[in-house]
């Protein structure tokens, strides 16, 4: 039995690859920038071991202002910066800049909450055994908060998949863009249904993988 797609299959694979690239790269950036920001927020909080209310407030308000801006607005507002970094304001790479900038503060806040929930007794034990500050971050805070951090990162990835749909606005392509252009603007219900199905499978897999890893970490 043969089945005729309304648009070439390559369109789907291309869109999937674009979404994958955007989510993957901006997710990686969010992870590696977000964790240091979360650590900074955590250790500078009043009562933390590098307590510095001013620095904490300063970093906190930068994080909050990026979180307060809706992604579609952020994307447009960041166009000059994007052009500065990537040399262009359209395409996958142009979308990665605002996606990373939006996902990093989001992830940083979630990671900060996980860090905050690390038992202070463990920090005390590390201090008592002669750990310096950096060693406490490395051996206590990060490994102990890892299940929460991974759980938060899973949420961040799912949010990124959703935001990346808007990246079509800067001509970045991706699954969301495909659904808008064909499914919505050309009334091609088939594309709409397929894209939604692919997104459901993608999000479900990301969530399941994250949950599995977290469960494995917690059950050691």
């Amino acid at each position: 039995m043969s089945f005729e797609l309304s648009i070439p299959f390559a369109q789907y694979t291309r869109a999937f690859a674009d979404t994958f690239t955007m989510v993957g790269i901006s997710g990686a950036i969010a992870f590696f920038v977000g964790i240091p920001v979360a650590v900074l927020l955590n250790v500078t909080t009043p009562g933390g071991f590098l307590a510095s209310p001013r620095l904490n407030r300063a970093v906190g308000s930068v994080v909050n202002s990026f979180r307060a801006t809706p992604f579609i607005v952020l994307m447009v507002a960041l166009i000059p910066l994007t052009r500065l970094i990537t040399g262009t304001s359209i395409g996958v790479w142009a979308a990665i800049v605002p996606l990373s900038i939006s996902a990093t503060p989001f992830f940083a806040r979630i990671a900060e909450v996980s860090l905050r929930e690390v038992d202070p007794g463990l920090v005390e034990a590390a201090q008592a055994m002669g750990c310096k500050k950096w060693e406490i971050v490395r051996h206590v805070y990060l490994p102990e908060a890892l299940p929460g951090i991974i759980g938060g990162f899973t949420i961040t990835l799912v949010a990124l998949i959703s935001s990346s749909a808007m990246a079509g606005a800067v001509g970045a392509g991706g699954l969301g863009d495909l659904a808008i252009r064909y499914g919505y603007q050309r009334f091609d219900t088939e594309v709409m249904v397929i894209v939604i199905a692919v997104l459901i499978v993608l999000v479900t897999s990301v969530q399941a993988a994250g949950d599995y890893y977290v469960r494995w970490l917690r059950n050691r």
Binding site: G121, A125, Q127, M129, G130, C131, V140, P143, L217
Partner: peptide, 29 residues
């Protein structure tokens, strides 16, 4: 602090490290 050992009511062992790694940590640092 390295000349003063300390044990705690709630043990305060690092849950992400094995028994070996927990005991090794003061020496590693």
């Amino acid at each position: 602090r390295r000349r003063i050992g300390m044990i705690f009511q709630h043990f305060n062992l690092l849950s992400a490290k094995t028994v070996y790694e927990n005991v090794a940590l003061p020496l590693r640092v």
